[in-house]
Simulated assay, not measured.
Amino acid sequence: MPDEEPAGRGRRGRRPKTGRAGRRASRRDDSNGGDPDEGDGLFGSDGVGGGSGGPSKRRGPFSEEQSSDPEARARGICLRLLTLAPRTRAQLAEALLKREIPAEVAERVLERFSEVGLIDDQAFAAMWVSSRHHGRGLARRALAQELRHRGVEEEMVKEAVERLDPDEEVETARRLVARKLGSTRGADPRARTRKLVGMLARKGYPAGLAFRIVREALEAEGEETSEEGGYLDSL
């Protein structure tokens, strides 16, 4: 048995790799049969492709954005933007223009995305109205302005904002005033009215409706209010 001792010492003498190199080697040995490209995830550190294999090794839905083919680049840009948030066709067209995608290529890609339902301005408008009204308390006028700014066609804008129930719009205005009312207590009634009506006006509520809602809220507190015209003239 003594002649086995040197072999044992030899095995013990081989020190395992330590530090970063050792950890990398260990991971390669422990995962997927030692293939270094497996287990890296869909995206590399640049967020568009996988690891060290170069363009041919890239993975993920946005790798086309780095392509030399304009149509592939356009698809990648649109997919990335749509993943971040819903977009209108006009917003995507503007993004492609900024990235110097040829107009005919951009139109072809946008048309294809519309055909498969990835772009749907009508659905975007309906979702926008619901979300912004319930989340921010915006009225139809402000909502329409925001949709126009995002390139939604006028007919779709009108259809989307008309779905907002007028009674719901009034109730939302009342809730907005009720939340703000406490912070104005102690101020001059005229100043309170200006502040509250101004808040509703910035959210797109018509001046007449805004004044009526504010007047009701102040009178419920026992506050005396003057005629509407004088207040509106001072806004």
Results as ranks from 00 to 15, higher is better:
1 M>I: 10
7 A>P: 04
11 R>K: 12
14 R>F: 13
20 R>W: 11
25 A>H: 06
25 A>G: 14
30 D>A: 15
35 D>K: 01
37 D>Y: 13
39 G>E: 13
41 G>C: 14
44 G>I: 03
48 V>H: 10
52 S>V: 08
61 P>Y: 06
63 S>M: 13
63 S>Y: 11
68 S>A: 09
69 D>G: 04
70 P>C: 10
73 R>K: 14
74 A>V: 00
74 A>Y: 01
75 R>E: 07
76 G>V: 01
81 L>K: 08
82 L>R: 03
86 P>T: 03
91 Q>K: 03
91 Q>M: 12
93 A>P: 07
95 A>P: 02
96 L>H: 00
96 L>E: 03
103 A>F: 03
107 E>L: 01
115 E>Y: 07
121 D>G: 05
124 F>M: 01
125 A>C: 07
129 V>H: 01
133 H>W: 02
134 H>M: 09
140 R>F: 01
142 A>P: 04
144 A>Q: 10
145 Q>V: 14
146 E>L: 11
148 R>M: 06
151 G>S: 12
153 E>W: 08
153 E>N: 08
156 M>W: 11
161 V>H: 00
167 D>I: 12
168 E>K: 15
173 A>T: 06
173 A>D: 08
177 V>N: 01
177 V>R: 03
181 L>V: 00
185 R>Q: 10
185 R>C: 02
187 A>P: 08
193 T>E: 13
199 M>I: 02
201 A>N: 09
201 A>E: 14
202 R>N: 13
216 E>A: 05
220 A>V: 02
222 G>Q: 02
225 T>L: 09
226 S>M: 04
